[in-house]
Design a protein around this nucleic acid. Sequence first.
DNA 1: TTGTAGGCGTTATCAA
DNA 2: TTGATAACGCCTACAA
Lengths: 345, 345
Amino acid sequence: MTADRGTPASARGGSAPTLEMVAAHAGVSRATVSRVVNGSPKVSPDVVEAVQAAIAVLNYVPNRAARSLASRRTQAIALVVPESTAKVFNDPFFATLVQGIGLALADTDYTLSMLIESEAASDKTRKYLLGGNVDGALVASHHTGDHSYAHVSRALPVVFGGRPLDPGEQVNYTVDVDNAHGAEIATEHLVERGRQRIATIGGPQDMPPGVDRLRGWRNVLDRAGRTSDLVEFGDFSPESGAIAMRRLLERDPTIDGVFCANDQMAMGAYAAILETGRTIPGDVAVVGFDDDRYASMAVPPLTTVHQPSLQMGEVMARTLVRLIAGEDVPSATLLSTQLVVRASS
Amino acid sequence: MTADRGTPASARGGSAPTLEMVAAHAGVSRATVSRVVNGSPKVSPDVVEAVQAAIAVLNYVPNRAARSLASRRTQAIALVVPESTAKVFNDPFFATLVQGIGLALADTDYTLSMLIESEAASDKTRKYLLGGNVDGALVASHHTGDHSYAHVSRALPVVFGGRPLDPGEQVNYTVDVDNAHGAEIATEHLVERGRQRIATIGGPQDMPPGVDRLRGWRNVLDRAGRTSDLVEFGDFSPESGAIAMRRLLERDPTIDGVFCANDQMAMGAYAAILETGRTIPGDVAVVGFDDDRYASMAVPPLTTVHQPSLQMGEVMARTLVRLIAGEDVPSATLLSTQLVVRASS
DNA sequence: TTGTAGGCGTTATCAA
DNA sequence: TTGATAACGCCTACAA
């Protein structure tokens, strides 16, 4: 295996075999080869065999660009994530989401292409989407950014994960988790456990889940006639959770329960609580949101709201595939959540 | 914004504007438009302006398939990760790696397309790579799987992250971390701290980092005339780390130091150590490897070997880009590591 | 069941 | 500096 160093990709040895070469090798026309490659039913068995043999011998793989140009579709879909790379990878939510998408796509022969909106690449992404690279797009965001992709949905089937920030803007095709209800059952759980001073570490208020989870917490306290002023905000990172928790404990040292808008902030809260000599759940009960893989490994294991991210990925992908096929799909799907009680509450 | 429901992507309103339409609109030939789009220097200023105006008006975006077909290059590179989706996303190493790649690619106009080798899609990936979808590929693996992509490097420029498992197989263009040396400084640190019974939780022995880090640990103990038999293996997950640690403590309750082949297993070891009533580092000193974001958040903060994953991503990407351009690049690059001493040792 | 031929949207080679 | 005019590799009526 000698190095091809210095050789431009376009000029590699023998270059890629084309459909025409296969046709010649098999002694048939290009059309017939095309039929075999695309699994057309009306080709005689022996011809199929001959063509497949030729394909194997030449190690032929159809050129996607050519195929896409001719057929006007790419068999690829994009997953757009308007977040920084760091956030995407450190948020276990995305892991499961992508897994769900992959699962749903495994049956099909769609290819997934991830576009992570890092630093300055917004226009690059737009061009990619509009440049005929994909048959459709999945936009998975917890961010305002959502509606910045609303315009592409005029040129391409798009399914959004999470509702738009502004309920007014009617974005078609969204799949969302019932965040408010999840926060409610979490907070109710703290109330039922007899906690008196229940605080919350809220997520960013420019992200729907941040808003909805805060609202759920507030709903329960309001209904119970409690005050709902013990709020500090974080950015969903562990660090921010620790900072927020420290502030809360300074503001009110009698806090005995806290609902964190996600598990990572809950992990930060753990650190902040423990460093004051308080115990969990003895002094402060903690409930998170997401049920990520660290939740059960924490000491003590974290009570949290399970986020159906796998299911969300699956539903998003299936919805998009059906949309591309021109089928009728529901405009919005809401997935339910569930409380997982562990030792932290 | 009405829904395009039921409309195949190929038949959307007005469809995508083509180069030809721009040409007509600007009153020039297609060739000229192409020149403007590609920034050719030999076009008169006024023509450039007219064409750009037409592009703006029509909201034109070049079709990639057509461009790629004609130019025989895609301006896209693939990142192949032969791991399950879950692993990729839960391993903070990849987060930083991808970030580094993204950083290096931001300057260029290459697009990154991530191929995560989930469940059964190996052939899909191969076809993607060989189907002319990308100009080159980055293979980031901790896995044996490495050499299964060796053959694509005959058809495409490929840069591997991590050395191949078998030193014999000369894979060109690798960027790797000096794992053995990292493990050595970690173990030396435990020795210097006066630890007497130093165990290790090794990674999978079918992955180079697993092998190299174990070797580093062993080197130091052998040189110090200590026994190096206190080994249990994990799969780099927290759970496996906990299990391995329990076994170690059962085998030898006098263990007072442990080097874990990665931070996630160290987190598992923490749990296993603490659940026996032992303290860290009082009873057992723990050192990890990777310096992931949880390492510093742990209680106590974890001493670990910093992995230059950001740099690795950057170097890999830059190397590939140069390779595609036909430049000369070093066949192997080794990045150095560094010990970060925190409270766990 | 198979082959012929035109076209998909760009780039690139020649002339002009 | 610009414009015709072939490719690029494949798909798909239409014809045989």
